[in-house]
Write a protein that binds this DNA or RNA. Sequence first.
DNA 1: AAGCGTATTTAGAATAATTCTAATTCTCAC
DNA 2: GTGAGAATTAGAATTATTCTAAATACGCTT
Lengths: 146, 146
Amino acid sequence: MKPETENHATLCQRLKECDVRPTPQREVVLKVILAKRDHPTVDEIFARVKSQMPTISLATVYNCLETLVQCGLVRQVNLERAPTRYCPNLHEHAHFHDDTTGQVHDIDLPAETMKRLQELLPPGFDASSVELTFRGRAADNPHGTN
Amino acid sequence: MKPETENHATLCQRLKECDVRPTPQREVVLKVILAKRDHPTVDEIFARVKSQMPTISLATVYNCLETLVQCGLVRQVNLERAPTRYCPNLHEHAHFHDDTTGQVHDIDLPAETMKRLQELLPPGFDASSVELTFRGRAADNPHGTN
DNA sequence: AAGCGTATTTAGAATAATTCTAATTCTCAC
DNA sequence: GTGAGAATTAGAATTATTCTAAATACGCTT
């Protein structure tokens, strides 16, 4: 139960298992992400990494992160790098991003569902909004929306 | 059932109900968002608005959108304007953004829940990933995470 | 161990989305 | 109509991210 102190061998192992070269840079980036589970931004990661490897460049941190995300060792929390979109549908609903077309479809959900999701929160959490987003492929014109 | 053709009076009405001045700019921005429910980006909104009001500025579109979102007439789809964050938790889980501290907490969810959400999708939709994000306030240190 | 081809890293420039600023214009209540 | 506050404008500034081209490191072959 101490993922914070992964050592060189373990980190290398993990990277190799994903068929990526275990470069020192990738290792350090992975290490700092595993060390503190606080969902750091790239800037924060860059700062932490630099304290261990002062010569690393920001571009490399971006590169490493991309690699780590691709091979599934790390997850991106704000998937959406694309510009903000707006939506006049005020009912509770989810969104479906079609990876193929880039379109965003509304998915109407049973009013209950959203409420039930809220109830899943542990005590101490009080949510004022819920966002549910799917990503994937949609049939050409799934439900006549256009 | 024709929200596409909201007229001047209706739009004004809607704005006034929210205690915002019904300026022509706000009216046009609202109109174009209601006209075509395709989750446009700011750029797209700007283009559509300009065709009706060529002198409007991009900054105004941003201002109007902020107002409309604040008063609940329009929703933002990619809430996250903040930088992308990274997370080493590979289990199915949701995220909770604490509005007060800006921190992001992992919320472990019953493995079933995520699966059940997928089943809510209408036929023709095939999701490869689901993202569930709560926003609100959390007790100081909800479950000892730090 | 030297050489080679490829992958990776690097610094800095470029881009894209958004926010800020300060001046001007508009609106509404009086 | 006037005046105070709100909204709009153009353009600069900021922020996050991606691109580019050159340098470097790596692992494989010999």
